[in-house]
Computed example of a mutant assay.
Amino acid sequence: MALPQMDRFTPVFAIAAAAELAQMHPQTLRQYDRIGLVSPQRTRGNTRRYSLHDVARLREVAKLSGEGLSLEGIRRVLELEDRVRDLEGRVRELERALTEERLQRPERRVFAAGAAGGEVVTLRRGARVKRSADVVVWQP
Protein backbone atom coordinates (compact mmCIF):
# COMPACT_ATOMS: atom_id res chain seq x y z
CA MET A 1 0.00 0.00 0.00
CA ALA A 2 1.43 3.36 -1.05
CA LEU A 3 1.77 6.09 1.53
CA PRO A 4 -0.05 9.35 0.80
CA GLN A 5 2.11 12.20 -0.47
CA MET A 6 2.89 14.88 2.08
CA ASP A 7 3.69 18.49 1.35
CA ARG A 8 3.73 21.75 3.30
CA PHE A 9 -0.08 21.91 3.18
CA THR A 10 -0.65 18.47 4.72
CA PRO A 11 -2.35 18.91 8.12
CA VAL A 12 -0.30 16.89 10.59
CA PHE A 13 0.16 18.92 13.79
CA ALA A 14 -2.26 18.99 16.69
CA ILE A 15 -2.79 22.39 18.28
CA ALA A 16 -0.24 21.79 21.08
CA ALA A 17 2.51 20.85 18.61
CA ALA A 18 1.68 23.74 16.27
CA ALA A 19 1.66 26.18 19.20
CA GLU A 20 5.07 24.94 20.30
CA LEU A 21 6.49 25.21 16.77
CA ALA A 22 5.09 28.73 16.40
CA GLN A 23 6.19 29.64 19.95
CA MET A 24 2.66 30.70 20.93
CA HIS A 25 0.06 29.68 23.45
CA PRO A 26 -2.60 27.25 22.12
CA GLN A 27 -5.31 29.75 23.11
CA THR A 28 -3.72 32.28 20.74
CA LEU A 29 -4.02 29.77 17.89
CA ARG A 30 -7.69 29.27 18.75
CA GLN A 31 -8.25 33.03 18.66
CA TYR A 32 -6.48 33.37 15.29
CA ASP A 33 -8.66 30.55 13.95
CA ARG A 34 -11.83 32.30 15.20
CA ILE A 35 -10.93 35.59 13.47
CA GLY A 36 -9.67 33.86 10.30
CA LEU A 37 -5.96 34.73 10.43
CA VAL A 38 -4.93 31.06 10.27
CA SER A 39 -7.56 28.44 9.48
CA PRO A 40 -6.33 24.91 10.13
CA GLN A 41 -8.12 21.91 8.69
CA ARG A 42 -10.37 19.83 10.92
CA THR A 43 -10.48 16.11 11.56
CA ARG A 44 -13.72 14.12 11.61
CA GLY A 45 -13.76 14.68 15.38
CA ASN A 46 -13.53 18.45 14.70
CA THR A 47 -10.05 18.87 16.17
CA ARG A 48 -7.67 21.31 14.54
CA ARG A 49 -4.78 20.00 12.43
CA TYR A 50 -2.08 22.43 11.34
CA SER A 51 0.27 22.12 8.37
CA LEU A 52 3.80 23.47 7.98
CA HIS A 53 2.24 26.27 5.92
CA ASP A 54 -0.06 27.13 8.84
CA VAL A 55 2.90 27.20 11.26
CA ALA A 56 4.85 29.50 8.93
CA ARG A 57 1.79 31.75 8.70
CA LEU A 58 1.52 31.82 12.52
CA ARG A 59 5.15 32.91 12.70
CA GLU A 60 4.43 35.65 10.13
CA VAL A 61 1.48 36.82 12.26
CA ALA A 62 3.76 36.97 15.32
CA LYS A 63 6.38 38.93 13.38
CA LEU A 64 3.86 41.47 12.08
CA SER A 65 2.29 41.78 15.52
CA GLY A 66 5.73 42.43 16.99
CA GLU A 67 6.16 45.22 14.44
CA GLY A 68 3.06 46.91 15.83
CA LEU A 69 0.34 45.92 13.34
CA SER A 70 -3.17 45.35 14.61
CA LEU A 71 -4.84 42.00 13.98
CA GLU A 72 -6.99 43.61 11.28
CA GLY A 73 -3.86 45.08 9.67
CA ILE A 74 -2.20 41.66 9.79
CA ARG A 75 -5.27 40.05 8.21
CA ARG A 76 -5.15 42.61 5.39
CA VAL A 77 -1.39 42.15 4.82
CA LEU A 78 -1.79 38.35 4.64
CA GLU A 79 -4.76 38.71 2.30
CA LEU A 80 -2.77 40.98 -0.04
CA GLU A 81 0.26 38.68 0.05
CA ASP A 82 -1.98 35.75 -0.93
CA ARG A 83 -3.48 37.82 -3.76
CA VAL A 84 -0.03 38.77 -5.07
CA ARG A 85 1.05 35.11 -4.98
CA ASP A 86 -2.09 34.09 -6.91
CA LEU A 87 -1.55 36.82 -9.51
CA GLU A 88 2.11 35.89 -9.94
CA GLY A 89 1.01 32.31 -10.62
CA ARG A 90 -1.53 33.53 -13.16
CA VAL A 91 1.12 35.64 -14.91
CA ARG A 92 3.39 32.58 -15.18
CA GLU A 93 0.48 30.58 -16.67
CA LEU A 94 -0.22 33.28 -19.24
CA GLU A 95 3.46 33.61 -20.14
CA ARG A 96 3.64 29.84 -20.77
CA ALA A 97 0.48 29.95 -22.88
CA LEU A 98 1.81 32.90 -24.89
CA THR A 99 5.12 31.15 -25.51
CA GLU A 100 3.32 28.00 -26.69
CA GLU A 101 1.05 30.05 -28.95
CA ARG A 102 4.01 31.85 -30.51
CA LEU A 103 5.80 28.58 -31.21
CA GLN A 104 2.74 26.94 -32.77
CA ARG A 105 1.92 29.73 -35.23
CA PRO A 106 4.14 29.74 -38.30
CA GLU A 107 2.56 32.96 -39.62
CA ARG A 108 3.18 35.10 -36.58
CA ARG A 109 2.04 38.69 -36.62
CA VAL A 110 4.03 41.76 -35.76
CA PHE A 111 2.57 44.83 -34.09
CA ALA A 112 3.87 48.38 -34.39
CA ALA A 113 2.86 51.93 -33.52
CA GLY A 114 1.03 53.60 -36.38
CA ALA A 115 2.22 56.87 -37.90
CA ALA A 116 -0.95 58.85 -37.23
CA GLY A 117 -1.52 58.86 -33.50
CA GLY A 118 0.38 56.04 -31.91
CA GLU A 119 -2.35 53.49 -32.61
CA VAL A 120 -1.36 49.84 -32.77
CA VAL A 121 -1.26 48.34 -36.26
CA THR A 122 -0.85 44.73 -37.33
CA LEU A 123 1.79 43.93 -39.92
CA ARG A 124 2.68 40.79 -41.79
CA ARG A 125 6.05 39.37 -40.99
CA GLY A 126 8.78 41.24 -42.86
CA ALA A 127 6.60 44.32 -43.56
CA ARG A 128 7.57 47.79 -42.35
CA VAL A 129 5.57 50.79 -41.18
CA LYS A 130 5.72 53.82 -43.48
CA ARG A 131 7.61 56.51 -41.68
CA SER A 132 6.47 60.09 -41.76
CA ALA A 133 8.96 62.77 -42.81
CA ASP A 134 7.01 65.52 -41.02
CA VAL A 135 9.08 67.87 -38.93
CA VAL A 136 7.55 69.10 -35.69
CA VAL A 137 9.06 72.18 -34.05
CA TRP A 138 8.61 72.54 -30.36
CA GLN A 139 8.81 75.90 -28.63
CA PRO A 140 8.52 76.37 -24.88
Rank of each mutant, 00 (worst) to 15 (best):
R57D: 11
R75E: 13
G73D: 07
P140N: 11
E95C: 00
P106A: 00
V136A: 04
Q41M: 11
R34A: 03
G126D: 01
R131P: 07
A14K: 05
A133C: 01
R30Y: 02
R131Q: 11
D134T: 14
R83A: 15
G68P: 09
R108T: 05
L71P: 09
D86Y: 15
R96G: 10
E119M: 02
T43A: 08
V55Y: 05
V12D: 03
P106M: 02
R57F: 10
S39E: 10
D86F: 10
V38N: 01
R42G: 03
L98T: 07
H53K: 09
F9G: 01
Q41G: 12
A2G: 13
R57V: 02
V135I: 15
R57N: 07
G114T: 11
I15N: 08
V121S: 07
G118L: 00
L64F: 10
V61A: 05
P106V: 05
A14W: 01
R75D: 12
A19M: 01
A22D: 06
F111P: 04
L21T: 00
A14P: 04
A127G: 02
V55G: 04
L98E: 03
L123R: 08
A2D: 11
A97T: 13
D86M: 12
V84W: 06
P4N: 05
N46V: 01
P40D: 12
P4T: 01
V77G: 01
G36R: 00
R57L: 15
L103I: 00
G68E: 06
S70P: 08
V136P: 00
S70M: 03
R42A: 08
L69I: 03
R125G: 00
E60G: 07
S65G: 04
E67L: 10
G45K: 13
L80P: 12
W138A: 13
L21R: 14
A56F: 04
K130W: 10
F9H: 13
E60H: 14
E101P: 00
V61L: 02
L64T: 02
T10A: 12
I74V: 10
R48Q: 13
V84T: 12
G117C: 00
A133L: 04
R59F: 10
R49V: 06
S70H: 08
F9W: 15
